[in-house]
Design a protein around this nucleic acid. Structure first.
Lengths: 225, 225
DNA sequence: AAAAATCTTCAATGCATAATCAACTTTTGT
DNA sequence: ACAAAAGTTGATTATGCATTGAAGATTTTT
């Protein structure tokens, strides 16, 4: 587990480095923002600890720079400034957590572990999407309306998934064509209409509450109310 | 985006609930740990805000209980106790972040957004434009004047959206022709007048305050005063 | 490998609604 | 009062949508 520490005060940097090393992390230290950026790009880091007050490139700027090349790596901001505005600025630039100096090492460690735990757990997502009494399971590809199971073909499922992921929004045929059929120009086909019809037969037919609605001239929408 | 608030101090709970509601989150409040657990199990929450000092079942215990059934949902701990040991205990029980009372709402919001960003669930931005008591939802294409829903056709909606996006500004017929009808030269048509009339019938008719106004020789404007 | 079954797409139809036009009326400014 | 601009209306045209069956493509079974 590799951690990059960007901190210009040598004492603080050494303090963090020693503590992390004792807890079996690999660390690298950069003493200014510019070097921090270079080191980050050269290595594969699992987490970044960032002081806000840095020479060359301040923490906020560095944070944005890191985010622009890596949207995922957890970033923990460190600073002496304590106003709420500073914190908000930190979060806005893409930081995931914020710790005020002076801090106890145990708290830093706890926050690092929490951040790492979170990023490791990402794959466990909620893979069941719902609209009213309709449930669609992205993993097992199972679809249920109320208690009854519904069998969908691949394309039907893709279309339904797209609609449900945009529930409450009217999606245009062009959107659907691009996202579900991967058509980027108008081929003059009516497949979409046909498949919406298929879906309606399987999902809405026989139910009082229709979920799929047409907005003429605009597109289709799935919603519950 | 649904957030569960477990907090026994009514004032604090109300403060958080109000702030979150204003920022378009759905919230539920539980006043003790036991009820919190029940509510959590009954609904599909995207995040939990947890006070540590709770009647019945304290925050740490509740946190563990929630983690045992859902390893994924972000949990933010809230407490008046400020020792590092407390924080460590919070993190150890499975919390993802920790905020000390008293706090500013802006910081709470920033941390919530950071947590949600981490778990890939981003708050749904709603694109609702308003003029006085008229609301138009760009996503769902729903239009409401006061409490009553209004059905518009595609062209009517486009025209209204254009007017509303330019609320307080007089827009000329030429502007409208270009932006809404995609006509770049004068065809001698009066469609625009006709459609403004359609809109007026649906939006202003029967209401004391007219929103759509004509500036003779200039164009149309939508405004509230 | 051939046959069967299923899925996907196309094309044609009829229907419903929306968009437009053009004649006429009303309002506004001079 | 007059002319110009804007509002209103019904008739006409155009467009968009639902539905169907059948053809073509793919997958599964034999």
């Amino acid at each position: 587990m590799k951690i990059l520490i960007v901190e210009d005060e040598p004492k603080v940097a050494a303090f963090i480095k020693r503590g992390l090393t004792e807890n079996d992390f690999e660390t690298e230290v950069a003493f200014d923002g510019y070097i921090g950026k270079q080191i980050f790009n050269s290595g594969n880091f699992n987490l970044v600890i960032l002081d806000i007050n840095l020479p060359q490139l301040n923490g906020i700027e560095l944070c944005k720079a890191i985010r622009s090349v890596n949207a995922n790596v957890p970033i923990l901001m460190l600073t002496a400034m304590g106003t709420t505005e500073d914190k908000i600025a930190g979060f806005d630039s893409g930081a995931d957590d914020y710790l005020l100096k002076p801090f106890e090492f145990a708290e830093l460690l706890a926050r690092i572990k929490a951040l790492l735990k979170r990023t490791q757990q990402r794959p466990v997502e909620n893979h069941i999407l719902k609209v009213a009494d309709l449930e669609i399971d992205i993993d097992s590809k199972e679809v249920k309306r109320g208690a009854s199971k519904i069998m969908l073909t691949a394309k039907e499922f893709m279309l339904l998934e797209f609609l449900v992921r945009n529930k409450g929004k009217v999606v245009s045929r062009v959107d659907i064509a691009e996202k579900v059929w991967d058509l980027n120009f108008d081929t003059g086909t009516n497949v979409i209409d046909v498949y919406v019809n298929f879906l309606r037969n399987k999902i809405d037919k026989g139910f009082a509450k229709k979920l799929i609605h047409t907005h003429i001239g605009m597109g289709y929408i799935i919603k519950n109310d």
